[in-house]
Deep mutational scan, measured.
Amino acid sequence: EQLARLKREFNENRYLTERRRQQLSSELGLNEAQIKIWFQNERA
């Protein structure tokens, strides 16, 4: 579920704002660094 949600977010926007990253962190139970790194890896 977390992965599917991250992929949906990535398809909508390849870059997250700090606020959006905080929201996802709270909703998915991941820390902000994990989300940031995931997005960086997807863009690579």
Rank of each mutant, 00 (worst) to 15 (best):
Q2L: 13
N13D: 10
E42W: 13
Y15D: 10
F10A: 02
K36I: 15
L16C: 06
E18S: 10
Q22S: 10
K36T: 15
R8F: 10
K7S: 05
Q22R: 12
L24G: 01
L16Y: 01
E12N: 11
R8Y: 09
E32C: 05
R14W: 10
Q2A: 12
N13A: 01
S26N: 13
E1W: 12
L3H: 08
I35Q: 00
Q34V: 14
Q22M: 12
R5H: 06
Y15P: 05
A44D: 12
T17W: 03
E9S: 04
N41Q: 11
L28G: 00
F10H: 01
Q40T: 07
L16D: 13
L16K: 01
A4L: 09
R8P: 02
L28D: 00
A44V: 10
R14E: 11
A4Q: 10
E32L: 07
K36V: 15
L16W: 04
T17I: 02
E42M: 14
Q2R: 08
N13M: 03
N13G: 06
L3P: 00
Q23E: 15
S26C: 13
R21V: 15
R14I: 08
S26W: 12
E9L: 07
N11D: 13
L6C: 05
E18Y: 05
I37E: 14
W38C: 05
L3Y: 05
L16I: 11
W38S: 03
G29A: 04
S26I: 15
G29P: 00
A33N: 13
L28H: 01
E32M: 09
E9Q: 03
K7R: 13
W38E: 03
E9R: 03
W38F: 12
Q23F: 07
K7N: 05
E9G: 01
K36S: 15
Q40F: 09
N31S: 15
F39D: 04
A44M: 14
W38R: 03
R8H: 12
K7C: 14
E18M: 07
S26R: 15
E1Q: 08
L28P: 01
Y15W: 12
E12G: 03
R14G: 11
N41D: 09
E32V: 09
E1K: 06
Q34I: 15
R5L: 05
Q2K: 08
G29H: 05
R5G: 04
R8D: 10
E27F: 04
R8W: 09
R21S: 15
S25P: 01
Q40N: 08
R14T: 04
K36R: 12
G29K: 03
Q34F: 15
I35G: 00
R21P: 02
E12H: 07
R20C: 10
R43F: 13
G29Q: 07
L30G: 00
L6K: 02
R20Y: 08
I37V: 08
E32H: 02
N41V: 07
R43Q: 12
F39R: 00
R19H: 14
E9W: 04
R5E: 08
R20I: 12
F10K: 01
N11I: 11
W38M: 05
R14K: 13
N41F: 07
L28E: 01
W38D: 03
K7V: 11
W38T: 00
S26D: 12
R14P: 15
G29S: 04
L6S: 04
L30D: 00
W38V: 03
L30N: 00
A44W: 09
T17P: 07
Q40I: 10
S25G: 07
N31F: 05
S26F: 13
F39T: 00
I37D: 14
R5P: 00
K36Q: 15
R19Y: 10
K7D: 03
R20K: 12
K7H: 12
E12C: 13
L24A: 02
I35F: 01
R43L: 14
L30H: 01
Q40P: 04
A33C: 15
E27T: 03
W38I: 06
G29C: 05
F39V: 00
E27G: 01
I35R: 00
R21E: 08
I37R: 11
I37A: 14
N11K: 12
S25N: 01
A44C: 14
R20M: 13
Q23H: 10
L6G: 02
Q40H: 08
L24T: 00
L28N: 01
L24D: 03
A4N: 09
Y15E: 12
Q34T: 13
Q2M: 11
S25E: 05
Q34K: 05
R5K: 07
R19M: 13
L6M: 03
N13Q: 02
L30M: 14
L16N: 04
E32G: 05
R19S: 14
T17Q: 04
N31Y: 04
K7W: 06
S25L: 07
A4S: 07
L28S: 02
A44F: 08
Y15S: 09
A44H: 08
I35C: 06
K7P: 02
N11T: 09
G29N: 08
L16P: 15
I37G: 07
E1L: 08
N11E: 14
N31C: 12
A44E: 13
N41C: 14
I35K: 02
N11C: 15
F10V: 03
A44R: 11
G29W: 01
L3D: 06
N31G: 12
A33P: 01
L6R: 02
E9N: 02
K7L: 13
F39W: 15
N13F: 04
L6W: 00
Q34Y: 15
N13W: 04
A33G: 08
R21D: 03
E12P: 00
E9V: 06
S25I: 09
Q22W: 05
L24Y: 01
E32K: 04
Y15H: 13
R5W: 03
N31L: 09
L3T: 09
L16R: 02
E42L: 09
L3E: 10
Q22I: 10
E32Q: 06
E1N: 08
R8M: 12
A44T: 08
I37F: 08
E42P: 00
L6A: 03
Y15K: 10
E27I: 09
Q40S: 06
K7M: 11
F10T: 01
L6P: 00
Y15V: 11
N11R: 11
I35M: 03
R5D: 03
L24Q: 00
A4E: 13
